[in-house]
């Protein structure tokens, strides 16, 4: 693949790549660091990328592998952030069970990164179990179980269950979803 073509495609994936980094790091500065490392690794390894294959998935794989490598090396997942988030979550829900998006994000941020990445890949981005398994370097069964645990944790954190009300989003949120046709930009 020619470098100029590779760069053009890489640039096109940058915002989604950063959003995926945000879902893992929950911190914009850390997400920027992660994206920067990912771009440099991808650029250096571009000769190993086969034209016609899925560059976004390849970039996601590099990004999440870099995230876990850094995490293992530093072992510094912020306990303070987790504590603050847990405290904030303990105060929910203050609006009669109606889940606002910010509450949902807080609940999401308390989940382990292994669940967050699968929720984003399969739940938000609608990748198949098989694609997610390949990107994460795990078996399909692991993807399914992480996804199920993540969804269950989100439902429980927000006080929702199969018998409870399903007002998960407010009217404004529903309008946005409807206007977008449920599609990603």
């Amino acid at each position: 693949m020619r470098r100029e073509d590779a760069k053009a495609e890489l640039v096109g994936h940058m915002k989604v790549l950063r959003a995926f980094a945000m879902s893992l790091t929950r911190n914009s500065a850390a997400a920027d660091d992660l994206v920067q490392d990912t771009v440099l690794k991808a650029w250096a390894g571009m000769d190993g990328f086969q034209q016609g294959s899925n560059m976004r998935a390849w970039l996601f794989t590099i990004l999440r592998n870099t995230f876990y490598s850094n995490r293992r090396k530093a072992a510094r997942e912020s306990e303070d952030v987790d504590g603050i988030l847990a405290g904030r979550l303990a105060e929910k829900p203050a609006h009669d069970g109606r889940l606002q998006l910010k509450d949902f994000r807080i609940a999401f941020d308390t989940l382990p990164p292994e669940q967050r990445e699968v929720l984003m890949l399969v739940g938000a981005l609608q990748h198949s179990y098989e694609d997610a398994a390949e990107m994460c370097g795990v078996k399909v069964g692991t993807i399914k179980s992480r996804l199920a645990r993540g969804r269950e944790a989100l439902a429980q954190a927000m006080g929702l269950d199969e018998n409870g009300p399903l007002e998960l989003t407010d009217a404004a949120t529903r309008a946005v979803v409807s206007a977008n046709g449920g599609q990603m930009g």
Binding site: R18, L101, G123, L154
Partner: peptide, 24 residues
């Protein structure tokens, strides 16, 4: 319930994906 959760996951991902890239 699963559909609603996935919708919200999409929304928070979209929100982050709409952000402008930082200068660095």
């Amino acid at each position: 319930l699963r559909t609603q959760i996935d919708e919200n996951l999409r929304l928070i991902f979209e929100e982050d994906a709409r952000a402008e890239l930082p200068d660095r």
